[in-house]
Design a protein around this nucleic acid. Structure first.
Lengths: 211, 211
DNA sequence: CCCTAAGAGTACCGTACGGTACGGTTCGGC
DNA sequence: GCCGAACCGTACCGTACGGTACTCTTAGGG
């Protein structure tokens, strides 16, 4: 796990603090420009002084929010036993569908937006944290599956990282950037499943051992 | 009020206005938080009053800047004559390399960041404009090539849009989101060329007619 | 029943920035 | 050489927001 801060997440977040962070997420989803400390305090029914006491400053609050959300999104496991072609496809599809669901959620879009805006202005933990918990976390979770599949003779590749990046591209395509830029793209559950199947089929056509 | 003129006159940008917009791009690249009207005026050696006269307000200035940059990035043509397998691969690689070069440029990253931040806060032309001049513009330019290649019997697909999106994913992969989030990813000219070749090879493996 | 601590609510301060006003300067037209 | 337009530089205004201080309420502990 190269990104050390991927899991430095929900340490010592009291339930009440969780409520506050949920309020931040709400406001974030409603529109980034409404995210003022006063608005957070009002929404969470707490005082600004408490916000500053708990989170230090505005950046600290945002950082805690990003970590808080990351700690809530954990998914995509696979069965290490009996890995045959069907099980592989199924696991990959589960990863793909989960990933598409996450990146198309309003929360993820809003959080990525604020992290990207933050990354533009010098001092930026947010971008790094989002990357560590998003793109890199899923990479580290998926690579073992890819390598197990390779050892089982189901797929072939030299570089697991490169293979994952191809998978990533086939799954995500233009979805994330379109959502971030405000395109009115909506992914239904059915479309996500179909997209996941298509992406996995394409991936296996590129990397699968001909049988 | 000359405001209407200034907004509508995104095609008729005087040289002096171009200088101002270039100054905006400079500041944008240097760090988004430094982009204040005062800073623009200082950098461009013009008065704030002139900025407001020409561009209406801050959003107008940003919009003009996005359009200005878009008007500077036009590339990726292909030879309609003699379209054989080699020519197709070459054209696709040119598209891919050009696209990678654009999205990994500091200017593009900075502009996408501000557009994304803008898209978060309700009323947002910026996101739409960036999308129209980026993702969708290249799609519209590439699809004719794909369709010509299909008619030439080089590739096979039902939906040109879907084929393009796959191409888009294979080329871009995780590059754009990583750059937007501030990952220290640098693409050398050689890597871009290699990536373009890989993406095209993969695309042709998925869509190419077996020969 | 008091004492203390946590925290809600609110008033307040400083500053940064969007937007405006105005005096001074340059320059093309007559 | 004069006039007006364009425009630079800058001082100025209003406001929004980050951050702080202060009061008031509530809850536990003795």
């Amino acid at each position: 796990m190269p990104q050390a801060d991927a899991i430095a997440a929900d340490d010592a977040v009291t339930p009440r603090q969780g409520e506050v962070l949920d309020a931040v997420l709400e406001l974030l989803v409603e529109g980034r420009d409404t995210l003022t400390m006063t608005a957070v305090a009002r929404r969470a029914s707490c005082s600004k002084e408490t916000l500053y006491k708990w989170f230090g400053d505005r950046d600290g609050l945002l950082t805690a929010t990003v970590r808080w959300q990351a700690s809530k999104v954990r998914a995509g496991n696979w069965d290490r036993q009996h890995l045959d072609a069907d099980a592989l496809a199924e696991s990959l599809e589960a990863f793909a569908a989960n990933w598409l669901t996450v990146i198309s959620s309003k929360t993820s879009v809003a959080l990525n937006r604020v992290a990207i805006a933050h990354a533009g202005s010098g001092r930026s933990d947010l971008g790094r944290i989002v990357l560590a918990n998003g793109r890199f976390a899923i990479g580290e979770r998926l690579k073992p599956l890819l390598e197990a599949a390779r050892e089982a003779g189901l797929i072939a590749f030299n570089d697991a990282e490169a293979a994952f990046r191809t998978f990533f591209g086939l799954v995500g395509r233009d979805v994330q950037v379109r959502l971030l830029l405000g395109d009115g793209l909506v992914l239904s559950k059915a479309e996500i499943v179909a997209d996941a199947e298509r992406a996995v089929a394409q991936f296996l056509m590129l990397y699968g051992r001909r049988n």
